[in-house]
Lab assay of single mutants.
Amino acid sequence: EAHAAIDTFTKYLDIDEDFATVLVEEGFSTLEELAYVPMKELLEIEGLDEPTVEALRERAKNALATIAQ
């Protein structure tokens, strides 16, 4: 499951495998979680700032909209 989540994140969020791995290690496994989890939870991840989190959430929401079509 972790590998599938990493693949999904790299494909749809335009991030590298290392960043995707950090997200999975922090407990995220779906685009929905990244799109809708409280921003505070993402900001608790070391190295993430508000602009990065906002961009990540926007990419996740856009990916979900694209997949739904």
Rank of each mutant, 00 (worst) to 15 (best):
A55N: 09
L23M: 03
N62V: 12
T8K: 09
S29R: 15
I67L: 11
L64A: 03
N62R: 15
A4P: 10
A4K: 14
A68Q: 12
I6Q: 04
G27V: 02
L43E: 03
K11W: 11
A60W: 03
K40T: 11
D18P: 08
D18R: 13
I6Y: 04
R59N: 06
E32I: 08
D18H: 14
V22S: 08
L31A: 00
L13Y: 01
E33P: 00
T21P: 00
E25T: 14
G27A: 02
Y36R: 09
L42P: 03
E46D: 11
D14L: 14
Q69K: 10
F19P: 00
T52H: 06
L48S: 02
E50K: 12
T10Q: 09
N62L: 14
I67S: 05
I15D: 01
L42W: 06
D7C: 14
F19G: 02
K11H: 09
V53P: 02
A20V: 03
L31V: 04
F19C: 07
V24Q: 04
L13R: 00
A60V: 08
E50S: 09
D7T: 11
E1I: 11
E32G: 06
L43R: 06
S29D: 06
A35R: 03
A20N: 01
T52S: 08
Q69M: 06
A2F: 14
I67C: 05
D7S: 11
M39V: 12
Y36T: 13
V53G: 11
K40R: 12
L34M: 05
N62T: 13
F19I: 09
E46S: 14
L31P: 01
F28L: 05
A65T: 08
D7G: 11
G47C: 06
N62Y: 11
A4D: 10
A55E: 08
A65K: 11
K40M: 09
K40Y: 11
Y36W: 10
T21M: 14
E58H: 09
E50R: 14
T10K: 10
I6S: 03
L34K: 00
I6N: 02
L31R: 00
E58W: 09
E17N: 10
P38A: 09
I67M: 10
P38R: 06
E1G: 12
E25A: 15
E1Y: 06
Y12K: 02
D18N: 11
E25K: 15
T66C: 09
P51L: 11
E33S: 13
A60T: 03
D18M: 12
K61D: 02
L56K: 00
I15R: 00
E17P: 10
D49C: 04
N62I: 14
R57M: 08
E50A: 12
G27E: 01
E44S: 14
R59T: 05
A2N: 12
T10G: 03
D18T: 12
E46P: 14
E58K: 15
L42G: 03
D16P: 10
L31F: 04
Y12F: 09
